[in-house]
Design a protein around this nucleic acid. Structure first.
Length: 417
DNA sequence: TGACGTCAAGATCCG
DNA sequence: CGGATCTTGACGTCA
């Protein structure tokens, strides 16, 4: 069982990818961005390993315009040593990775040029994974595509295009149910005919159900037979509905109780769970730390990252978690995350937000210049007076954290959630 | 023709 | 000038 997150992480300095617009996509620019992004990826993988996160989706933006403008740049040769080094990190840690072309990669399009570019895009994704030395259990996740008014014909067109793909792409491809057109029944039918493994996406299934009398756990069991030995363990996508947004929109964070409910129904299945959620690595760590005992130090590290976020919402819960973690003989992960969720779900009051900002300011009180002091007091005063929101205060503190290299703060979630 | 979704680049505004 | 805040880009399908 591995639990992971997609593409980018919050509060991991040095892991941010860069891109550019098409009109600036000259060869040199693309190569320097690629080099930068490979270094960022290496940082992110190191973070994942340090934190016991062994499932990860690599961003398609790793090589900017990798399937079009940069298609013929020999990046895999130019950066062979960097790619090999990253591949070694996966190998040594046992990390499983995947990639997921976006909604604009449509293999079954009736437009031949769209389909052709989709094939190029799949070749690009396969080239990234192969250049990292990764085997076929490291998957490329795709949706069936468009319906064009005739789902039966659209499925048939997917199958015939799939058969024309090169063997390496085909060996990595897995199909996922989407949130509007092709539900899990469509995907099982289409993929089943071709021996393509199926990823069950819980939120897509609730937005676009096939049969509401079948539970998530049952759909997952039905998909398990599509995963053969060489494909690695079955994978699913797990996410929760955003409370205020339209059906299918991902939540800010994974609610731990709902996650555990499904998790316990899946006991005994060898399953990898990709979380799709706004707070990315934060929810991955929450789930990982809750389902296995990773030691008190792991919880203390997490608390260090959450503490100022909790403090600004609720001093009472801040004190409560401090007390909870004093007993070193226990592993109160679930209780801690319950309290974190309760705090983050409560409204941000100006008084407690000012208090938390002053705590963070304490890191710079002695080192900050006079003008920095004045700017902080000015920004905080404006917020306290209701003349602006908190973001300028946090931006200022974030800049100071970078300038004075306060790593404890740079790794905290305070600037990210 | 706009919405959809995603994120950062790029542009512009502001003190 | 640096920083904050808006707008654009890049993709294809569907209403």
């Amino acid at each position: 069982m591995k639990i992971g997150y997609a593409c980018l992480a919050l509060a991991v300095p040095g892991s941010e990818m860069k891109s550019c617009t098409l009109k600036n996509a000259a060869r040199d620019r693309l190569l320097s961005l690629t080099e930068y992004n490979l270094d960022a990826l290496a940082h992110l993988i190191d973070y994942n390993i340090r934190n016991g996160i062994l499932l990860f989706r690599i961003s398609s933006d790793l090589i900017p315009f990798g399937s079009a403008t940069a298609k013929d740049l020999p990046w895999e040769r130019i950066f062979a040593s960097k790619l090999t080094a990253i591949g070694q990190k996966f190998q040594n840690s046992g990390m499983r990775v995947s990639m997921h072309p976006g909604q604009y990669t449509v293999l079954n399009s009736p437009d031949e040029s769209v389909a052709r570019r989709s094939v190029e895009d799949l070749l690009y994704h396969d080239k990234v994974l192969s250049s990292l030395g990764l085997g076929r259990e490291h998957k490329i996740v795709l949706h069936l595509g468009g319906a064009y008014g005739d789902k039966t014909q659209a499925k048939a067109r997917f199958i015939s295009r799939y058969r024309e793909l090169n063997p390496s792409v085909r060996s990595r491809l897995v199909l996922e149910n989407d949130d509007r057109l092709f539900h899990i029944g469509d995907v099982l039918e289409t993929a089943g005919a071709e021996g393509v493994p199926v990823i069950f996406d819980t939120l897509h299934n609730s937005a676009n159900p096939c049969d509401t009398s079948v539970s998530d756990a049952d759909w997952i069991r039905r998909c398990s037979s599509t995963w053969l030995e060489d494909d690695g363990p079955q994978k699913i996508h797990y996410s929760q509905q955003h409370p205020d947004r339209k059906p299918g929109a991902h939540s800010e964070s994974i609610g731990i109780d709902a996650f555990l409910k499904l998790y316990h129904q899946l006991a005994g299945i060898d399953l990898d769970i990709m979380l799709e959620v706004k707070d990315k690595n934060l929810s991955a760590l929450k789930c990982i730390n809750t389902v296995s005992n990773r030691g008190m130090s792991a919880l203390e590290t997490e608390w260090g990252r959450y503490k100022y976020s909790v403090l600004e919402h609720s001093p009472a819960l801040y004190q409560g978690i401090r007390t909870l973690l004093k007993d070193k003989s226990e592993y109160p992960a679930l209780e801690m995350y319950h309290m974190v969720e309760e705090a983050m779900g409560s409204p941000l009051l100006p008084g407690t937000a000012v208090n938390a900002a002053q705590h963070v300011w304490g890191y710079f009180r002695n080192s900050a210049s006079e003008s920095e002091q004045a700017r902080f007091q000015n920004a905080l005063g404006k917020f306290a007076a209701g003349e602006s929101d908190l973001q300028p205060v946090k931006n200022l503190l974030n800049r100071l954290a970078k300038k004075y290299n306060e790593n404890y703060l740079l790794n905290a979630y305070y600037f990210s959630i």
